[in-house]
């Protein structure tokens, strides 16, 4: 079996996995998705997997500060990358929430909350790239995230609130 090591930084913590072409316990197969690695191996279940084909956005995480669908990303393609999940937004020492997380609470920007981690991470990716988006840009950036409870109106308010607080 051909193998190689994959190094990932997830929420500031370094991991190294042996990756191989076969599916053997303890080895990350080359076709394993980042979503599975995060959820099944690292127990980072904050991001959800619902559609498994990159259409609902529930599994969104940041890879090198870009919002991606982790269900459509292979772990073996993430060697050397820095990954941030919803669990990595909160300050681990002080417990202080990221401004987006706080705004989602303050603006009541969720209902069932299943899609919320993915939406927050997609919004985070947008604000890193474009700290002061227009409302249209927010809607566009989140159009790959599904929310069937329909919290969209409140989500947009929350993201716009944060975008106005950010200073460059």
């Amino acid at each position: 079996m051909e193998t190689k090591f994959i190094a990932l930084t997830v929420n500031g913590k370094k991991y190294e996995f042996l990756s191989g072409s076969d599916s053997i316990v303890g080895i990350v197969p080359w076709n394993e998705t980042l979503s599975d690695t995060l959820r099944q191996r690292l127990d980072l279940t904050g991001s959800k997997e619902a559609c498994g084909e990159g259409a609902c956005g529930c599994c969104t995480v940041l890879v090198d500060n870009r919002a991606v669908s982790s269900c459509m990303t292979l772990t073996s393609d993430c060697n050397g990358k820095e990954i941030i999940t919803i669990e990595g937004l909160e300050d681990p020492v002080t417990g202080e929430l990221d401004p987006l997380q706080q705004a989602f609470i303050d603006y009541y920007a969720f209902q069932c909350g299943f899609c919320t981690p993915g939406i927050i991470m997609a919004a985070k990716g947008l604000l890193i790239k474009n700290p002061h988006p227009t409302e249209e840009e927010v809607k566009d950036a989140l159009s790959g995230n599904q929310c069937r409870c329909i919290s969209q109106y409140h989500v947009i308010d929350a993201v716009m609130h944060v975008s106005k607080q950010i200073s460059i």
């Binding site: 669990e87 929430l97 009541y108």
Partner: peptide, 21 residues
């Protein structure tokens, strides 16, 4: 009067548990 949801912090930090978790 609006009151934050019991599980608000868990939802926005990804700590809320759903069946598949």
């Amino acid at each position: 009067v609006n009151r934050p949801r019991i599980d608000a912090r868990e939802i926005v930090t990804g700590k809320a548990i759903f069946l598949d978790d």
